[in-house]
């Protein structure tokens, strides 16, 4: 296989090999990753029970379904963080990447995509254990399953592109943790990560509709664990495509300016 597909296949393979080098670390990582949704799940299940079986129309079984799918979507959302950019520039790794006849984003997209293969394999037993413990309510149609498979990769692309663009602020300054923190906090609240979007106040839910975060978390989760209409399923995919286009344009624009800055200042 040649060209970009060949590059993606090779880098993904390397990512899988790299991750398999650290099997124990992978399981420890996954267990750590599961801790967060289990806390949410236990809290919301308790609240649902105390309110006669549901909160805002969501039953304990639906909460369980939501947070079990959450664990997979969260792992699909692991991408190169802005913090890694600082290292990349300080250690001269970016210079090495710039000497190659391929845009560095392809390497990152391929590497983290390859990682997902390992993550999904590790996720299956964890999802089974959570299912036995929390008894989720699933009602999945064929269309929902297909849309979900597309939507999790859409979510991956949106988050990759937006965090890549954010990470490139490092071209100008390496002290940008505060900016990253604002992004991550907004994402936590308005994506469906902390709480299902249906439970947010109307104004916050309306705001979330206009931001990209929902399409990286809440939307793909609800495709499988919620009850979206066919129209809502397909509109969600279309809006993911819009955000991917926006992210790609943003990366291209910031890269063009940032790389001139890097070329002027060096590392």
């Amino acid at each position: 296989m040649n060209g970009l597909p060949g590059l993606y296949a090779t880098v993904m393979k390397a990512a899988v090999q790299t991750q398999f080098q650290y099997r124990t670390a992978n399981y420890a990582y996954m267990l750590g990753m599961v801790a967060e949704p289990v806390v949410y799940l236990v809290v919301w299940s308790a609240v649902a029970e105390s309110r006669g079986g549901s909160v805002g129309g969501i039953t304990a079984g639906e909460f369980a379904a939501y947070y079990i799918v959450w664990t997979l979507v969260r792992n699909m959302n692991i991408v190169l963080t802005p913090y890694a950019w600082e290292d990349r520039i300080q250690q001269g790794e970016l210079s090495g990447m710039l000497l190659r006849p391929v845009h560095p984003i392809h390497y990152d997209l391929a590497f983290f995509a390859g990682w997902k293969v390992v993550v999904v394999l590790l996720w299956i037993p964890i999802a089974l254990v959570l299912s036995v413990a929390f008894r989720p309510t699933f009602d999945i149609s064929a269309l929902e399953a297909v849309v979900f498979l597309v939507a999790i990769w859409g979510a991956y692309l949106i988050r990759s592109l937006l965090l890549w663009a954010l990470g490139m602020i490092t071209f100008w300054t390496t002290r940008v943790s505060a900016i990253y923190d604002v992004y991550f906090t907004a994402e936590l609240l308005l994506s469906g990560r902390l709480v299902p979007l249906a439970l947010l106040p109307a104004w916050a839910g309306g705001l979330a509709d206009w931001l990209p975060f929902k399409y990286t978390f809440g939307y793909p989760i609800e495709v499988l664990a919620g009850s979206l209409s066919t129209r809502e399923l397909l509109t969600g995919l279309a809006l993911q495509a819009v955000w991917i286009g926006f992210g790609a344009a943003l990366v291209a624009a910031v890269w063009r300016v940032g790389i001139r800055r890097y070329g002027a200042v060096g590392s």
Binding site: G6, L7, A9, T10, V11, K13, A14, Q17, T18, Q21, Y22, R100, P101, V102
Partner: peptide
């Protein structure tokens, strides 16, 4: 983390 041979494969794809 990988043997150099795997990095060489990556260079084959890149170049």
């Amino acid at each position: 983390d990988l043997p150099a041979l795997d990095s060489y494969e990556m260079n084959r794809a890149i170049y």
